[in-house]
Design a protein around this nucleic acid. Structure first.
Lengths: 344, 344
DNA sequence: GTGAAAGCGCTAACAC
DNA sequence: GTGTTAGCGCTTTCAC
């Protein structure tokens, strides 16, 4: 790669000190005199010295790389999370290495296996839907590579995790529908295995209960996170003998899919049937009527997840923290007050 | 990181051969006997041996990492390109390191400077809008790090580049408007400095000429790529003494911004004023009326850019290639046949 | 407070 | 065809 970059050897030669002194000075250890440190720093700057992380990686095992594993990149939530991670990592001199699993547990575990070869100082992960992943991540952690989970967290791994407030988000969304007069509220949910699905479901139920609203198993349908999934789910819902008058969707893409299904049937959105999403994808404002949705703090999630990871990297025994970040309900036209709602 | 992974030393010890033999066998050089190679491979497998790329990086300068530099991540085009890159890279055992410049030339050159410290085997780049970047990338290339440009390419760098067919895309878009009866076609363009802006502008002009359509300087407005930019640009356009009856936008977000501006003025889209975008962001199908747009092969661009880069990495003197990938006009409702168009 | 020397895992002359 | 040795750039005992 390099032809000849300055190394600590060069600095040592110029200053007529040993490389170990230079190494220590650069890392600002306490057993080097201020005078030497300053001299070293000055020469380093003059020579435009940059440490070779591959060498430190070999000698000490610190690569200055952190890995991030996630199911997809091409959606608003994930790309925003990464932007947050990237900013934080870069500010601390860490690079981020990107791994995409396509939501496949096999790819996921393959990625983790290969991680051993290049080496990362730590790992940020959002697991695949059907990932039985605790075990391979556990192995990584046992070897001393810290892992921080975000969004889709694996049960059973004791480590830091950061996520949006799924329960509260779902609760507030459904509460909003209830307050606006909707009585028969359905939920098109994510994959049943995911913890976030369970938490959103719990929030949904809690709100139903609080507002004394009916709950029917056939009003809850699980599937993936795509727009197509949402469209299919909504069609399912419309077949129910007792038709829901509102839909709370696990994310915006599903909500939009549902809106498409409703439009195809000529059902007025935000009047006959209210719709609320989750995320606040920019699409929510583009779609018509504009989609009411619970905004997730995606960038902040990325930022905090990265901060936690850096702490784990720096302090071997940093105690795991769980951070749950609140979002905010963005009220728009898809959930307008409904006056003609009738109870079941 | 590792507690103790198998190294070539372990393999050598077991087989009672030297580490260099193991090293050679593993790399499949021709001066090792088949027997030894096989034995080495077998033991390597048994021991679950993984090469330590940090060590090869030190010894040989090959990190198995490729860097990708781009302005933003949070949009459909870029996140899709990266997905293409990632897939290709992973298949060849390369990791991708992500750098985001936020479209700032300063961040861009800082990133390039810091690249020297960790080291990448090659670099994929989409330059910042005002990047005067040829020079720092040139320096990288001089040091032997291959660079492949995509989408926004820097003039003056002789190296491989891959991009969508900007000229053709613009030409076909405008041609489509012309054929549908629009006569006064405006263009809300990207930053004037970018080559892709120039190419799209050229395509626009060529189509205007071919269809004998009027061209007016005030019908061309340059700004950034955001929805807000598009909205502002369209407002600008509506002030023209001779009002355009169609808008060709440099991307879908700008087109959607323009649509919003038109809606606010109560102007019927796809009737009074036709709109065509560029990209085929999923939003184009969500917005109403659905947006006609020239679909870019984003995933394929990422894939081919990565393939070219890998070739450059593998063959020191691989001759630079330029690949221009065609897209496809997606005709939807925002550009319906216009019967009442009047000439200037 | 500083230096000498060994070593991280691998590659690459150069011998034999 | 295989082994020996030095070395990539840095960290880290262990002396002094």
């Amino acid at each position: 790669m390099a032809h000849h970059d300055a190394t600590i050897k060069d600095i040592a030669a110029i200053l007529k000190v040993s490389v170990s002194t230079v190494s220590r000075a650069l890392r600002d250890t306490h057993d080097v005199s201020e005078r030497t440190k300053e001299a070293v720093r000055r020469v380093a700057r003059d020579l435009n010295y940059k440490p070779n992380y591959n060498a430190t990686a070999l000698a000490r095992g610190s690569t200055h790389n952190i890995g991030i594993i996630l199911p997809f990149l091409t959606n608003y939530y994930f790309s925003t999370v990464i932007s947050g991670v990237q900013q934080t990592a870069m500010a601390s001199g860490f690079n981020i290495i990107l791994f995409i699993t396509n939501d496949s547990p096999e790819t996921e575990s393959q990625v983790v296996r290969n991680l051993f070869t290049s080496g990362v100082d730590g790992l940020l992960v959002c697991i695949a839907s059907n990932s039985n992943s605790s075990e391979h991540f556990q192995r990584l952690m046992d070897r001393g590579t810290p892992v921080v989970l975000f969004d889709r967290v694996a049960e059973g791994l004791v480590t830091s995790r950061v996520m949006q407030d799924d329960f509260k988000g779902a609760f507030e969304s459904v509460q909003h529908l209830a307050k606006n007069g909707y009585r028969k509220i359905a939920h098109i949910a994510g994959p049943a295995t995911l913890m976030l699905t369970k938490r959103r479901l719990a929030g949904y139920h809690a709100a139903l209960k609080k507002y004394n609203l009916p709950s029917r198993p056939e009003w809850i349908v699980h599937s993936g996170f795509s727009q197509q999934d949402g469209e299919r789910d909504a069609k399912e819902l419309l077949k129910c003998p007792i038709r829901p008058d509102a839909i709370f969707a696990a994310n915006d893409r599903k909500a939009i899919g549902a809106m498409i299904a409703l439009k195809k049937k000529g059902i007025a959105i935000g009047t006959a049937i209210g719709v609320v999403g989750f995320t606040d994808d920019p699409m929510a404002q583009i779609v018509s009527p504009a989609l009411t949705t619970y905004a997730e703090p995606a960038f902040e999630i990325g930022k905090q997840a990265c901060e936690l990871l850096l702490k784990h990297i720096q302090k071997k025994n940093f105690a795991p923290e769980e951070r749950i970040l609140s979002g905010r309900l963005m009220i728009r036209e898809s959930s307008k007050p409904n006056t003609k709602a009738k109870d079941v």
